[in-house]
Design a protein around this nucleic acid. Structure first.
Lengths: 264, 264
DNA sequence: GCCTATATGATTGAAAGCAATCATATAGCC
DNA sequence: GGCTATATGATTGCTTTCAATCATATAGGC
């Protein structure tokens, strides 16, 4: 049964402040306090998470978390299976002994996870490995992993995204010579690959400029999307790792040589 | 396979502090960080919950949950008042419009806290301000503060200390021209000021080399201590900010010009 | 007043987390 | 050096949580 809008809004405000003061609230508690069904409780929590007021955890929700660790939402989000497959395929491109740059962004974060999953030692291993990144979650994840050395780029620290950016980051890329640069993007259509922030693109370009090879990871949800800042035209993409098959790409107007396409 | 007791204890201490700083940690993350199986992760979490250090939630664990309700006042009491006085005195050295380097370490972290506490605007304010640091907690704390721009040095990421270090960090210091460098140390005796890690000292030296001035923050508990790596002889110290009075310093065999001493 | 968009609660299959148990390797003690 | 207590990781069956779907009632716009 539908209920007036103001009631819904008020309830969600109450819930938000409830969670902020408690710090953490299990779902059952939410139902009891608001006297709603579990389904509605979940919907309310989803709505609050959408507007970045709270952070969902399995079985409840955290308040105050986004302010302190905004990147966590991304880290926490269960990697969609497609993303994990892409990540595994991208990680397979990395040869032992190489120096790789890992971009910021959730898909590339999944690549870092996949790197940990790959055999730590032996013929199938990617290690030893030097990883350079401007993503704090990636650095955080890989640091202290045997056989992996992690370097952070320097630069302006953006807490909201948990990354470093800016002219210093771009400059520091020139200190390196990457064997592979692994990139993500937010949009991909007939015109090319796009991202939302100019600063992010600047670092991506700088990394690619100092690399022997690069690979772009794109999950199918990005197809047809377009972000303001152009990163690549399609002919510039050396390797595209995606879960979308050739037909799907074709639908989106994307033309790429089969030899450059890796379907995960 | 059984493992030495001290290893288990150390791991659990690490886990506790990890959870305290993250706020919340999902089980999978715990496994990844500690490189243990899920079973062991659960056992560790159970143990920590037993001793009331953390609170378990379904799928993870909360830190700070138990400490959340004790008021701020009480939390402040825990932070040594001496350290806060030192921090305030050091923060007072910072002029608006300047570029300062903040070292890693708990005393200097307190300086960052004091910077936030200083008037955000007006005659008494230190802002606008550019802060450069190799300490992630400092960057985390100051980022997104109005009037403060935060830059991280690049370099090898050391998770255990949450800092970046190494030759890149040293090199990147040369990109800057600091108005003031704020340093901490672990030991101070007649011979001079010492720190435990050569890499840390290397960055401290590089920062000082590119600075017009520097200040050393030392709480009295460090007097008489000695760490392996020499940082300064006393005649090299431009400004010493400490809670120890001149007599106390004299007892420890420390000779420093009164004009260079700031007693907080 | 009628119609449609939407907020709700129920249901269900799938995924994730959990507690218990067991084999194994080794730290710690005699 | 040998014995035992214990920390670990794997496995299994069970419980909880989740996402998706559906029917229903009603708010809000015409």
């Amino acid at each position: 049964m539908r209920v007036p809008q103001h009631v819904v809004d008020a309830r969600r405000r109450d819930l938000a402040s409830l969670i902020q003061t408690t710090g953490w609230l299990p779902i059952a508690e939410v139902c009891a306090r608001l006297k709603v069904s579990e389904a509605t409780a979940r919907r309310d929590l989803d709505a609050l998470e959408q507007s970045d007021v709270i952070t969902r955890t399995r079985g409840g929700a955290l308040g105050e978390f986004n302010q302190r660790f905004p990147s966590f939402r991304e880290r926490q989000r269960v990697a969609a299976p497609a993303k994990r497959r892409i990540a595994r395929a991208a990680a397979a491109l990395i040869a032992p002994g190489s120096t790789v740059f890992l971009d910021a962004g959730s898909t590339v974060y999944a690549v870092a996870e996949a790197l940990i999953a790959r055999a730590p030692i032996g013929a199938d291993s990617a290690r030893p490995l030097t990883v350079v990144t401007n993503s704090l979650p990636v650095a955080e994840l890989l640091a202290d992993t045997d056989g992996i050395t992690v370097s952070l780029l320097g630069g302006r620290y953006l807490r909201r995204l948990s990354i470093v950016l800016g002219p210093e980051s771009v400059r520091h890329c020139a200190d390196w010579s990457f064997d592979l640069v692994v990139l993500g993007a937010e949009g991909a259509d007939a015109a090319g690959v796009t991202n939302s922030q100019p600063d992010v693109v600047a670092v991506q370009r700088a990394a690619v400029a100092n690399a022997r090879a690069h690979a772009l990871c794109l999950d199918a949800s990005k197809l047809g999307q377009r972000a303001p800042e152009p990163l690549f035209a399609w002919h510039q993409v050396q390797r595209l790792v995606t879960d979308a098959d050739a037909a799907r790409l074709d639908d989106a107007g994307i033309r790429i040589l089969p030899s450059r396409l890796i379907t995960a």
